[in-house]
Simulated scan of single mutants.
Amino acid sequence: MDPIAPSSDLMNELLLGMRLRGIQYRRIHAGASFGFAFEEKPGCAYFHFLATGTAALLTENGALQTLSAGNAVFLPQGSAHQIFSDPQVSVQDIDYCDVMALSDTVCAVACSSDTPQMIFFSGCMEFDLGGLQGLVPLMPELMMIDATSQRYLELMPILTAMEQEARTGRMGDAGILARLADVVMAVIVRGWVECGCGNSSAFVTALREPKLSRAILALHRHPGRDWTVAELAAESGLSRSVFARRFQEMIGVAPLRYAGELRMRIARTWLTYDRMSIENVADKLGYTSQAAFSRAYKRIVGVPPGYSRRVLGK
């Protein structure tokens, strides 16, 4: 068996589980002087693509990043930041700028009556990795790529297509933009993992470690199975004791605790976004009764499953 295959399969599982919802796009035109502030939005992610001109991005922790045409920026944790022409310029909250609606999900922001010197395409969306949602807090505050680089050559035509869709306002543009955004985010996340995730977490190291990745992949493919540590160790080709120790060291929790938390993350997605019934979710996740599932859900998530379905799913 190819030793890289399990990690590749797990990457597919990660990307297939990724969902972007509630997407709102802005196409922003500005002159020589501009400044925009983006407030913190927990549970969401920001995406920016600079089509023309130059700019600077200041993160909440004070890091300053220079942007040029062709750069794309992804902030997976929805942290507050600013984009401006110069640090001395005053900034305005992007949510309070005058806009012109291009469609239900796309609007235009024009801050100059002259020929724009800077055009960028911006999106804010709910960022959900499904069963691997625990990966989001481990991601860096900001992930920047050069869409013209050799590693990301596939992104340039996609980003260009997104800009064209936002600009022309053709029928069905919102649906096209949402699907193109899915691809862009997936490529960025994949590139981050391929590059070693900045060595930022043992969890992601495990995704790249063939033996552990087999067990994690089995858990994600069959979350409703009543797994034992011995069965997961067999998936990894390790002894029970070696597997349990290595899993704890690299993931930070015991295997069965991870399995239980995974079920509840999947359950929350099914209840909140897919609008599945509590009974159906309990059955799909292997619980013998709805009551047993509800107790486990409240213990791990902190609220009853009915709350997630009724309130969060609105």
Rank of each mutant, 00 (worst) to 15 (best):
M1E: 14
L219I: 09
L262I: 04
R208W: 05
G169E: 08
A218T: 04
G35K: 02
I4Q: 13
D128Q: 08
K314W: 09
S122G: 04
A296S: 15
V301C: 05
Q88P: 00
Y96A: 13
I94C: 11
G191R: 04
E141L: 14
A101Y: 10
G260S: 15
L102V: 12
F203N: 03
A282R: 07
R309E: 06
C97K: 12
C44F: 11
S33K: 13
F120M: 02
G191K: 09
E39V: 14
I83Y: 07
F203W: 14
E249W: 12
G131V: 13
A181N: 14
T160K: 09
H29Y: 15
S213Q: 01
S112Q: 07
I4S: 13
Y96V: 11
G175P: 01
S103V: 06
M156R: 13
F293I: 05
N199V: 10
Y258P: 01
I158K: 07
V91H: 04
R299D: 12
D2E: 11
M11W: 02
D274T: 01
I188N: 01
A254I: 01
I300F: 06
A206P: 04
D9M: 12
P304D: 04
A215M: 07
G286V: 05
V303C: 06
C97P: 00
C107M: 06
S8W: 12
R295V: 11
V204A: 10
W270N: 07
V73C: 05
P6R: 08
H29M: 09
L50E: 00
F49Q: 00
M250D: 08
M276S: 09
A218L: 03
V311S: 07
F49M: 00
F38H: 15
V242D: 14
W227D: 03
V301G: 00
A181S: 14
G260Q: 11
G169H: 10
H222I: 04
S103M: 08
Y96D: 15
V73A: 05
D104E: 10
A267S: 15
V189W: 02
G123K: 01
E261P: 02
L20C: 09
L177G: 03
L312P: 00
R214S: 15
G130C: 01
S8N: 13
R19A: 08
M171C: 14
E194C: 10
V89G: 02
E249H: 15
W192R: 03
L57I: 06
V229L: 07
I119H: 06
S7R: 06
R310C: 08
N199C: 12
L135P: 02
E39P: 14
S277Y: 03
E126D: 15
G260Y: 04
C195P: 00
E261F: 02
Y307E: 07
A108H: 10
F84N: 03
S236R: 01
W270Q: 15
G172H: 08
D128W: 05
Q248E: 09
P116D: 06
P76N: 01
L64N: 08
C97L: 12
A296K: 05
